[in-house]
Design a binder for these strands. Sequence first.
DNA 1: GTCTATACCTGGATAGAC
DNA 2: GTCTATCCAGGTATAGAC
Lengths: 197, 197
Amino acid sequence: MKENATRERIVQAADKLFYERGYEATSFADIADAVTLSRGNFYHHFKTKDAILLAVIALRKANTAAMLDHWAGAAHEPAERIRSFIRILIVNRAQIRLYGCPVGTLCGELAKLGHPAQAEASGLFTLFRDWLRREFVRLGRESDADALAMHVLARSQGIATLASAFHDDRFIDQETAGLSAWLDGLVASQPSPSTHS
Amino acid sequence: MKENATRERIVQAADKLFYERGYEATSFADIADAVTLSRGNFYHHFKTKDAILLAVIALRKANTAAMLDHWAGAAHEPAERIRSFIRILIVNRAQIRLYGCPVGTLCGELAKLGHPAQAEASGLFTLFRDWLRREFVRLGRESDADALAMHVLARSQGIATLASAFHDDRFIDQETAGLSAWLDGLVASQPSPSTHS
DNA sequence: GTCTATACCTGGATAGAC
DNA sequence: GTCTATCCAGGTATAGAC
C-alpha cells in the first residue's frame, strides 16, 4: 500500500513537471526532488523515463474521463455540456497563459521527438473528441458530428497556443465568447434537437 | 564572405532541425553534422546555443516578412491576401502533419523552458498578426481588426496542432475550408469594403 | 578559418549496503 | 523500500595546433 502511495506521488509530480517544463526538460532528479526521494530509490518504482510518461498519460486519461463524466452529470442538454468543455479554457486560464494546453503541448513535443508514446498521448484528444462527437449527435448533427467535435477541439487548441505565446489571458475570454456564440448559432439552426441520452 | 556563407548554412540547418526535432533536443553535434563542420569550428561562428536560436528567429522573421510582401504583391484585394495566409496550411500540410506549426511549437517550447528568447519568438506571430490586422482594416473592420486577426491566427494554430497530434492532413483541408467560408461570410456582410492600399 | 583534443557537467541508469 | 556511490553517454564549451 505504501508502495502505491509513493508511486502515485511520483506520477502526480511528474504530471505537473511535464506540463510546466516539458517532458524532455524534466529530469529524474527534478521529479525525485519534488517528492523528496533519492534518485536511486526512484528506480525501484520506475525503470525508465518512458515508463513514467506512460503512467502520466494514464493518470491524465483517468482524470479526463472523470471530468467528462462529471460534466455529463452536471448538465443534461448537449449544448450545455459542450459549453462545459469550452469553459475549461477560462477556468484554467492562468495555467494556459503560462504553459498552454497540457494535451496539445505534450503531443507536439512527442511528435518532434518521434516518441513511441505519441499514439497514447493523442488518445487524450480522442477522449474529448469522442465525447464531443456524442453530444453533437445528440444535438441532431449525426452527419457531421465528428467534424464539429474536431472543430471545437481545434478552436480551443488555437486559443491555448496564442494565449501562451502572447501571455495574454484576456484573449481567452474574447475567443471563448466567439466560440460560445458559434455554438449558440448552431443550436438555433437546429429545428428539433434530440434530448434522449 | 566565406565566413558569412558558412554562418548562413549553420543557421539554415539549425532552422530546419529546431523545427523538426525541437530546440532543446537539437545538439550542437546535430547541427555541425548537418553542415559537415567540426564541433570546435562551430564555436568560431556561434558562442552559445542561445545565439543560434536568436539567429534562427531572425532568419524566420526575414523569411516571413518576404512572404507577406509576396502575398501583398500577388493580390490586391484584402480577402484574397488573407486567403493566401490560410493557404499556407495546405501548402505545408505534409510538414505540419509531422511537426506542427514552426512558430506555435517554438513558442510553446520556449514558454515551458522559461527561455529569455520567448518575446523574440512570439514576435513571429506579431508579424502575421499586424499584417492580417491591416488587411481586415482594409476590409472595413477598423473596430475589430485585431480581434479578427487573432481569430484567424488562433484557428490556423488549432488546425496545425490537431493535424500534428492525429497525423491527419485531410483534416487540414476540412478545417481550412471552414475558415475560408467564415471569411467569405465576413466579406459578404461588409457593405462597401475599402479598396485603397 | 578549420581542425583535434579535451575539460566539465548533467542526465539516465545500475549496484549494492542498510 | 530507501539510501549512497558510481558508471556511462552525450552535451556545452574551451584551448590550441595547423
